[in-house]
Simulated assay, not measured.
Amino acid sequence: MKNSNLHVIAMIPARLQATRFPRKLLQDLGGKSVIVRTYLNTKATGLFDEVIVVTDSQEIFDDIKSHGGQVMMSQKEHSCGSDRIAEAVETINTDIVVNVQGDEPFTDKDSLENLLNVFHQNDAEQIDLASLMTPLNDLDDIQNPNYVKVIVNQQNFALYFSRSPIPYHRNQTISVQYYRHKGIYAFRKQAILDFSKLPMLGLEAAEQIECIRFLEHGKTIKMVQTQENSFGIDTPQDLDRAKAFFNQQNP
């Protein structure tokens, strides 16, 4: 996207004390921490004018700095990554902000490029933000509440997100494709600033899915399908899987 007329940055929110796996971002992955791997992988795509880690942790700040990376320290406490990014981006002159999850070190260039391309399509003016979805076919995955599902309209704008299987497959004669939401977003700058000022409403509070806030307040989310099946690191078992995957890619 560097060749486009849009200024595009990637921001990686990095909270040290994650609930399920504290300090996971500083765990070793092939000789560097998970957060450094995420930063370097995002930088290597060449899609962004800047890549910036935003953190509440001096340890993460120092780790990124030691690898020559750009990093900012949050000035306030935040309950979610989007709020952390909103604080950081307020003083940055940019058009599009991509939220890259700090615990997803393997997201590939093609997925990010496809995500950014929606801001150059015919319906670009209708898009407040864009996000990724990938097909779900395994029944256990479809029923897993840790996998957020999304349904879309004919133009691939999100209708709803849920931890429950949506749609409910009552009529078994109808073929249904389920999609998992991947928590990577491309925001117009104003959309991310608006997010931090909008109150959490009932559906978001019930599901504990932050992007529902946009839908409840009338914002539009364009979903982009990807076959790329990267994974987040939420547990020690996920880290073991990530290490095995890394070793396969780097024999």
Score class of each variant (00 low, 15 high):
Lys2Arg: 11
Leu6Pro: 02
Ala10Gln: 08
Met11Asp: 00
Ile12Lys: 05
Arg15Ala: 12
Ala18Met: 02
Thr19Leu: 12
Leu25Met: 08
Leu26Ala: 10
Gly31Ala: 08
Arg37Tyr: 07
Thr38Ser: 01
Tyr39Trp: 12
Asn41Ser: 12
Leu47Ser: 14
Leu47Lys: 01
Val51Pro: 00
Val51Gln: 00
Val53Leu: 12
Ile60Trp: 07
Asp63Gly: 13
Asp63Phe: 13
Ile64Glu: 05
Ser66Ile: 03
Gly68Phe: 00
Gly68Leu: 07
Met72Trp: 09
Glu77Trp: 05
Cys80Asp: 15
Gly81Ala: 03
Asp83Cys: 00
Arg84Tyr: 00
Ala86Cys: 08
Ala86Gly: 10
Ala86Thr: 00
Glu87Ala: 11
Ala88Lys: 08
Thr91Ser: 11
Thr91Pro: 01
Ile96Cys: 06
Val98Asp: 01
Val98Gln: 02
Val98Gly: 00
Asp103Glu: 12
Glu104Val: 09
Glu104Trp: 04
Lys109His: 03
Leu112Phe: 10
Leu115Asp: 02
Leu115Gln: 06
His120Tyr: 14
Gln121Pro: 01
Asp123Gln: 09
Ala124Asp: 07
Glu125Leu: 09
Gln126Asp: 15
Ile127Val: 11
Ala130His: 03
Ser131Glu: 09
Leu132Trp: 05
Pro135Ala: 07
Asp138Ile: 09
Asp140Gln: 13
Asp141Lys: 14
Asp141Tyr: 13
Asn144Ser: 02
Asn146Ser: 03
Lys149Tyr: 02
Val150Asn: 09
Ile151Asn: 01
Val152Ser: 07
Gln155Asp: 04
Arg163Glu: 06
Pro165Gln: 14
Pro167Val: 09
Pro167Ile: 04
Thr173Pro: 00
Ser175Leu: 11
Val176Cys: 07
Tyr179Ile: 00
Tyr179Pro: 02
Lys182Cys: 12
Ile184Arg: 01
Ala186His: 10
Ala186Val: 01
Ala186Gln: 08
Ala186Tyr: 04
Phe195Cys: 06
Phe195Asp: 08
Leu198Val: 13
Glu204Asn: 08
Gln208Lys: 15
Ile209Trp: 02
Arg213Lys: 15
Phe214Glu: 04
Phe214Trp: 11
Glu216Cys: 09
Lys222His: 05
Met223Ala: 07
Val224Ser: 00
Thr226Ile: 05
Thr226Gln: 02
Thr226Arg: 04
Gln227Thr: 10
Glu228Asp: 14
Gly232Pro: 06
Thr235Phe: 15
Ala242Ser: 14
Lys243Leu: 12
Lys243Met: 04
Lys243Val: 06
Ala244His: 15
